[in-house]
Amino acid sequence: MKKYLPKSSLILGIGSLLYFFLYPQDAHAMHIMEGMLPPKWCIFWFAVSAPFFIYGIIRMKKIVVSSQQNARIMLALCGAFVFVLSSLKMPSVTGSCSHPTGVGLGTVMFGPGVMSVLGVIVLLFQALLLAHGGLTTLGANCFSMTIVGPFVGFGVYKLCRAFKVNRSVSLFLCAVLADWSTYVTTSFQLAVVFPDPNTGVGGAIIKFLGIYAVTQIPLAIAEGLLTVIVYNLVISNNLWKETALS
């Protein structure tokens, strides 16, 4: 007879695992820090991100009022997962840093739209309480981490499942590519503001990606593995169904 972990033990285990990643470090500011982007680019990224945020609000409202068991608890878990993992900072490009994003878990469970809302909450808390990121750069950080990342990851996950790829492998690729696409986007966002004097925006993107790759590749792989572990724990203990809200 198959035995399941008590919910309290599961929550304690996940909490302990996540606390390990939140061990205090010197802050170097997450993503693009306050003052790094000119006002016109701050406004631009806010405008681009706004429609996705509105869609996420509508999508989240439907989830909250749905009859799906543990929907609110799982939303909170996904938000906490993003907060904790994106607080693990490693200095990378000047004025920025590398870290896991944590968006793969919520993307698979609720779809990419919801992550734009959870991401804004996380980024606001980190900017206001932890001095990570910034308020003027909130739109840019939201676009890279909680819009591009989740949509890329979701597309990868759905494609893998359509080709009958193992669930864990699909989830791993979702988390890894959501993470990598975030930093491709961040590199572009920095490159258009700080182009290379000789090679322009294209050369700057290559340089930024080259610097990020040193820290981001192993971080993304570690994030993918952790995401698979947490998701499988949730599913195996009947806290969520793979087909929920699909």
Rank of each mutant, 00 (worst) to 15 (best):
E223Q: 07
G200A: 04
A178Y: 05
H31N: 15
V93A: 04
V48S: 04
F208K: 02
D26N: 13
A76S: 11
V108S: 03
V152Y: 07
G79Y: 10
S98G: 11
S9Q: 10
I205K: 06
F151C: 07
M145N: 00
L129V: 13
N238M: 06
L10S: 03
A47I: 14
G95F: 08
G139Y: 03
V148G: 02
V156S: 05
H99W: 05
L88P: 01
I43N: 00
T146E: 09
L5W: 15
Y55F: 14
M36K: 10
A204E: 00
K2G: 07
V120H: 05
A178F: 08
N70R: 11
A127D: 06
S16E: 08
V169H: 07
Q216M: 09
A213T: 11
Q216I: 08
Q69H: 12
F110G: 04
I58W: 14
N198K: 13
P218I: 07
Y19E: 00
V64K: 10
R167N: 11
C142E: 10
T137I: 03
L130Y: 15
F143Y: 06
V184L: 13
A213D: 01
G224P: 02
L219N: 05
A191S: 14
K158A: 02
S92C: 12
L239P: 00
A213E: 04
P100D: 07
L123G: 04
L105G: 02
V214Y: 06
S87G: 15
T182V: 11
M33V: 15
G119Y: 06
I14M: 10
K158H: 08
S16W: 13
L10W: 04
L226P: 02
Q69P: 06
R167E: 13
G155E: 05
Y4P: 01
T186E: 12
A162V: 01
L135C: 01
N166R: 13
M115L: 13
L10E: 05
